[in-house]
Simulated assay, not measured.
Amino acid sequence: MPENPEVPDAAEPDVRTLDPRSLRGLAHPLRMRLLVTLRHHGPATASQLAERLGESSGATSYHLRQLATHGFVADDPERGKGRERWWKAADKGVMLGNALHNDPNPEVRGAVNTFIHEVASIHDQELSTWLGTMHDWPDTWAAKSDFSDFTLRLTPELLAELDGRVHDLINSYRNLAVPEDDESAAQVRIHLHAFPLKKPHTPDA
Score class of each variant (00 low, 15 high):
S128W: 02
S61I: 05
L131Q: 06
T202R: 11
D103L: 05
P77S: 04
T114H: 00
A68H: 11
P156T: 03
K144E: 06
A194R: 03
H167P: 03
A194F: 01
I190Y: 10
S121R: 14
R174V: 10
A59D: 15
S121E: 12
D182F: 10
V188A: 04
T60E: 02
S61H: 12
L67V: 03
K144T: 09
W141T: 03
R31F: 01
H167K: 07
K92N: 10
L26M: 02
P138C: 01
V178M: 07
L162M: 13
L154V: 02
T37V: 05
D91H: 12
L35Y: 14
R65M: 08
P196M: 09
R33N: 04
L131T: 02
R24E: 12
N175K: 00
P13M: 03
K81G: 12
L158A: 09
G97E: 12
L35H: 13
L127S: 15
L18A: 02
A194T: 08
A74P: 01
A205W: 12
A120K: 07
K198W: 06
T133Q: 15
D75G: 06
E55A: 03
H201A: 15
R33K: 08
P8V: 08
G93Y: 11
R109A: 03
P77E: 06
L23C: 00
D76F: 05
H117I: 00
L131E: 01
S56D: 12
H167W: 09
Y62P: 03
E157Y: 09
H167C: 06
V15S: 08
V119Y: 14
L152K: 04
F115Q: 06
P5H: 01
L127M: 10
M134H: 13
S22E: 06
W87Y: 13
A59T: 12
A120E: 05
G42F: 12
V36Q: 15
E12Y: 02
D75H: 08
T151A: 04
R83K: 11
K144A: 15
A59R: 15
R16K: 06
S184I: 00
L158D: 13
E6S: 10
T17S: 10
S56F: 13
T151Q: 09
T140D: 14
A111K: 02
P20S: 14
R189K: 11
D75S: 09
N113P: 01
H135M: 11
R65P: 08
V166P: 02
D76H: 11
D168E: 14
H40N: 00
I122T: 13
N175V: 00
Q66N: 09
L53N: 00
N171V: 11
A120I: 04
A11G: 05
S121P: 04
S145K: 00
R165A: 15
T17L: 02
P8Y: 11
H135G: 01
R79L: 14
I116K: 05
S47P: 04
Q125W: 09
E84P: 09
F147L: 05
D19P: 13
A186I: 00
A99N: 12
A99I: 12
H117T: 04
T129L: 15
L38M: 02
H70R: 05
A46K: 05
T155L: 09
D75M: 03
S22L: 03
V15G: 06
P156N: 01
L152F: 13
F150I: 10
R83P: 04
D149Q: 08
D163A: 10
R65T: 04
L96F: 11
A143T: 12
G42T: 01
